[in-house]
Simulated scan of single mutants.
Amino acid sequence: MRTTKSLAAAVLAAALALICVPAANATANLPVPWTLLAAVPAQLANPGGAPPGANDFSCRPSAAHPEPVVLTHGLGANQTVNWQTYSPLLKNNGYCVFSLTYGVPGTPMPIYQPGGLVQMQQSAHELSLFIDRVLAATGASKVDILGHSEGTVMPSYYVKNLGGAAKVAKYVSLTPLWKGTTLFGVSHLYDLAKVLNLNPLIDGALDPACGSCRQFLQGSDYNNDMNSGSGIFQPGVEYTNILTRYDEAVVPYTNGLGSGPNVRNIVLQDTCALDFSEHVGLAADRNAAGHVLNALDPAHTKPVPCVPAGPLGS
């Protein structure tokens, strides 16, 4: 019986090790779950709460990592569900990490609160206030941003239009959509609605529930505004875009590519053909995480291994 129990304990320990692997050279010893499923118990235990390692406003950035990292989630997500992997990973690697849930319309729901639902200009103002708070608390002069999905394009309004270019050093994006998306052909249908003058009716019905949704569309007013004039990629900010060819939300995935002397594009499958992560999966993908760490600390880059990954990450 003792042998059976010991064997069962060993199997359980091994299984947990595969899911929760602390980062190399960890300093905080927080478990890093390489699975999106970690969001479920976290959300149930503390709905809308900060992910592990985030929002310690007594944290002081080190000389090695002088900029705090601010995490910005995707549409319909929040800080809890989006950052169970990256928050402890970055904390273990010596960063001061901060996250927020933005774009919540009305009164927050008690069990699960989706964020990113108001127009992105409004969310960008929320982000601006949050970053000012982070800078004041940490004494840093700039932050780095790590965004996923909507969290890649919403902060661009802050950087371009709200003075954020002077306060952001590095801007790392998972599954960005700088040119919007044509998902299910909705952008083309919306263009047709413009011709038929149906936009006021559609916007009036959609905006109260999701003011940001139509802003994602290729050719939207928001998208056109961000790409006009000086463009999205502002001087003085270092941009890294991390894309997957299997992105089913950003269509085509190449709409996440950027150009400019301060812009770097990484398509995961160019360096790891065994990575089949889709849009959401990059939030728990080991290969993407390696690129993120290198982007945040380009002076000390490390080889990014090719770890086989399914659609929902590795």
Rank of each mutant, 00 (worst) to 15 (best):
K170P: 00
A299M: 10
P311E: 04
G74V: 08
V134M: 09
H300N: 15
K302S: 14
L7P: 00
L296G: 03
N294P: 01
S149G: 10
A137R: 12
I145F: 06
L206A: 09
S277W: 01
S156A: 15
V70L: 07
T3E: 15
A17M: 14
K302C: 00
P33W: 02
N29E: 11
F216S: 06
D144C: 03
P66Y: 09
V70Q: 08
A54H: 06
V32A: 06
A42G: 14
V263S: 09
Y190H: 07
G281L: 02
S259H: 07
A166W: 01
A10D: 02
P61Y: 12
N262I: 01
M120N: 13
H188G: 03
M226E: 13
Q84T: 13
Y112G: 04
L217M: 12
T240R: 02
S277V: 10
A193E: 11
P155A: 06
A54M: 10
T240H: 08
G115F: 11
P114M: 13
L127V: 07
F130A: 09
Y246F: 15
P31A: 13
T3S: 15
T85F: 04
P22Q: 11
S128Y: 04
G53W: 03
T4D: 11
A136T: 09
T80C: 05
Y95D: 02
I242F: 11
V104Q: 03
D203I: 04
A39E: 10
L117G: 02
N78Y: 05
A54N: 08
G76P: 10
A273E: 12
D221S: 15
P303H: 09
L135I: 08
P68T: 11
V104N: 01
A50V: 05
V97S: 03
G211N: 02
G94N: 10
A193P: 02
V104D: 04
P305L: 09
I19A: 15
N227R: 12
A249Q: 14
H73M: 04
N199Y: 12
K302H: 12
V32R: 03
P105S: 05
T182H: 02
T301Y: 00
R2L: 15
A24Y: 05
G116W: 02
V153E: 13
G260D: 13
E248W: 00
G229E: 13
I242L: 09
L127N: 01
T182Y: 08
N25Y: 07
G139Y: 05
N224E: 14
G76A: 04
R60M: 10
P110H: 08
Q79F: 09
R286T: 06
T101E: 14
D132Y: 05
L71T: 11
A38N: 14
V267L: 14
N294G: 05
P155C: 10
T254R: 08
D191R: 15
P88H: 06
V237Q: 07
Q215K: 01
N227A: 14
L71W: 07
S259R: 05
P52L: 11
A289I: 10
L16W: 12
A28W: 00
A24E: 15
G53L: 04
Y102C: 00
A288N: 11
H125D: 13
D221V: 14
D285S: 12
N161K: 12
